[in-house]
């Protein structure tokens, strides 16, 4: 066991060479524990770990560590997300110790969407450190047992450290280098932005494999099934750094009334099938936004079940 960094289920699944499958769950906009438990129940046994978003799109929600703790109690492994927008380095380090103390073993380090998009655009943003530095901080605390100021930590946190990559943001040529930097900083695993432009993703992965980055970390390809044509158009136009090709929109439009969601799932299944065979891809991160109840069906049809017990 000593060669495990965190002992998390996700780490063990990946280490054992299984094709990993992670899900996502946004905490409630309130203290509604029952609703959260309901959403979590859909994911139980269907995925290896579930990302718990941290004030996603800068909209206030139940804190990600609290929701992660509830998830843990429900028997589902959380992947605790932390953004650099809302915390300075003191709060970050104390939360890292806190989640580790609660038994949370995965942590995803993100810059965070700018508060301009959220429901409190008047707020002051922090960005004391950036996502790259957050990865390095988590690694330092875990591996060196030291705080950022080099003071010793009596019991260091145990965390499997994750980071995000967006192959579709610009400048495109720089994205593999930025990924390499995150791995150098200490990322154990990577989850990508939702993929729709498969050509661009293939090109990105080829470059990543040529650079040997995939050998130093586990890369999970991001999949979000399209629920409607409107959603596809919105994501393509309104979400910066999201690449939704016209062909996909046309395909969804061609599905006809009442059949668009099914076509969206079919596209996602085709993607997952290709990712299984794609060199350098170690798993899939399924972000079924407010569609947790469809995850069992998608997991089943994608041939992801049962999840390995490690």
């Amino acid at each position: 066991m000593s060669d495990l960094k965190s002992g998390s289920n996700l780490e063990k699944v990946l280490k054992a060479g299984h094709f990993a499958f992670t899900g996502e769950c946004g905490p409630p906009k309130g203290a509604n524990v029952e609703h959260l438990k309901e959403k979590v129940a859909h994911l139980k046994g269907m995925v290896d770990a579930v990302n718990v978003t941290d004030n996603q799109t800068a909209v206030v929600r139940m804190s990600s560590w609290a929701a992660s703790t509830i998830m843990l109690q429900e028997g589902v492994e959380p992947n605790f997300q932390m953004v650099c927008r809302d915390r300075n380095r003191l709060a970050m380090m104390s939360d890292i110790l806190g989640v580790s103390a609660m038994g949370i073993r995965n942590m995803l380090c993100l810059s965070g969407d700018h508060q301009r998009f959220g429901n409190h655009p008047q707020s002051k943003n922090v960005y004391d450190i950036d996502s790259m530095q957050l990865i390095a901080l988590a690694k330092k605390m875990r591996d060196e047992g030291r705080f950022l100021n080099d003071e010793e930590i009596d019991v260091p946190p145990r965390l499997f450290i994750g980071a995000a990559a967006n192959p579709f943001a610009e400048p495109h040529e720089f994205r593999p280098y930025r990924l390499a930097k995150k791995v150098e900083a200490g990322a154990d695993f990577i989850q990508t932005q939702c993929i729709y432009n498969m050509d661009r993703f293939r090109a990105f992965m080829k470059r990543v494999v040529d650079m040997g980055i995939h050998e130093k970390c586990s890369i999970l390809a991001g999949v979000t099934p399209m629920k409607s044509v409107g959603m596809a158009k919105y994501m393509g136009k309104m979400v910066p750094g999201m690449d939704v090709p016209d062909e996909l929109i046309q395909r969804l439009q061609g599905a006809g009334k009442g059949k668009v969601a099914e076509e969206g799932i079919r596209f996602a299944l085709e993607q997952i099938e290709e990712f299984r065979e794609m060199e350098g891809v170690a798993g899939v991160h399924l972000m079924a936004i407010e569609w947790e109840h469809r995850v069992p069906e998608i997991a089943e049809r994608a041939g992801m079940l049962p999840r390995p017990r490690v």
Binding site: C84, R85, S111, G112, D113, H114, N125, Y127, D130, S131, M132, Q133, A164, A165, N166, A169, E170, P171, F174, R178, K181, Q193, P240, G241
Partner: peptide
């Protein structure tokens, strides 16, 4: 976001 290791995914 005053990133020193950018660009972020929103570029």
């Amino acid at each position: 976001k005053s990133l020193l290791n950018g660009p972020c995914g929103g570029s």
